[in-house]
């Protein structure tokens, strides 16, 4: 076979292979491009953690018995703003946050327009009783049913708080400690006149 023949035949094979490669690569490239599009348009991991699927949804149940043995049901507080606060007695940010919750409770206790319910997270009732005896605070602290509530709210750590509107919808989530002014600001923003 002469050299020009070999070149001509090689060129023909190359064109065929290229065409097949294009046919095979096309669906793969399309699939990969779509996957990249899906991943690129999603929120970052941090944004997803700071967000929550229950925001904008009806508040999951918070029901059971408190550390003083009294029954509690979040639904009984429909019509009020409620802070659902998940905490642990030995967590330092929870200890730092607690005076702010006390201040918030004192501001709203008389009017009864906003309440707090604390939910024990991975702690013992005895430790929590001692915590409230030392640090103050006179609001319901859910003990029985606390784990169900923590999992239903998707709690990832403590302290973690959710603001439930009078309609019963979860409107705000805070990872880490809250402040009394911060909560009031959120309520003020949500209830501001147009």
């Amino acid at each position: 076979m002469s050299e020009p023949d070999r070149r001509e035949r090689g060129a023909g094979m190359s064109r065929g292979s290229r065409r097949r490669a294009v046919w095979i690569a096309l669906p793969v490239a399309t699939a990969v491009a779509l996957l990249v599009l899906v991943l690129a348009t999603r929120d970052s991991a941090f944004e997803r953690k700071a967000s929550s699927p229950i925001l904008g949804a009806l508040a999951p149940p918070v029901a059971g018995a408190t550390i003083t043995g009294e029954p509690f049901d979040l639904d009984d507080w429909r019509g009020r703003w409620v802070i659902v606060n998940f905490f642990q007695s030995t967590c330092v940010p929870c200890i730092v946050e607690h005076p702010e919750l006390v201040a918030f409770d004192e501001r709203h206790n008389a009017a009864g327009d906003a309440r707090i319910v604390s939910v024990v997270f991975d702690d013992t009732v005895e430790n929590v009783r001692e915590f409230f005896a030392v640090h103050g605070g006179d609001w319901p602290v859910l003990a029985t049913g606390a784990r169900e509530a923590a999992v239903a709210y998707g709690v990832t750590g403590v302290p973690e708080s959710y603001l439930v509107a009078p309609s019963g919808v979860v409107v705000w989530k805070q990872l880490g400690g809250v402040t009394a002014d911060g909560i009031d600001d959120v309520i003020a923003q949500l209830t501001a006149d147009p």
Partner: peptide
């Protein structure tokens, strides 16, 4: 419902997440 779909190692077969299953099959 509580922790979002990221918690599930087996993504669901509906919605946008279903593309994770569909696209490789399509390819």
């Amino acid at each position: 419902a509580a922790y979002d779909v990221d918690i599930d190692y087996n993504p669901s077969g509906s919605g946008v997440t279903s593309l994770v299953w569909i696209l490789p099959v399509l390819a």
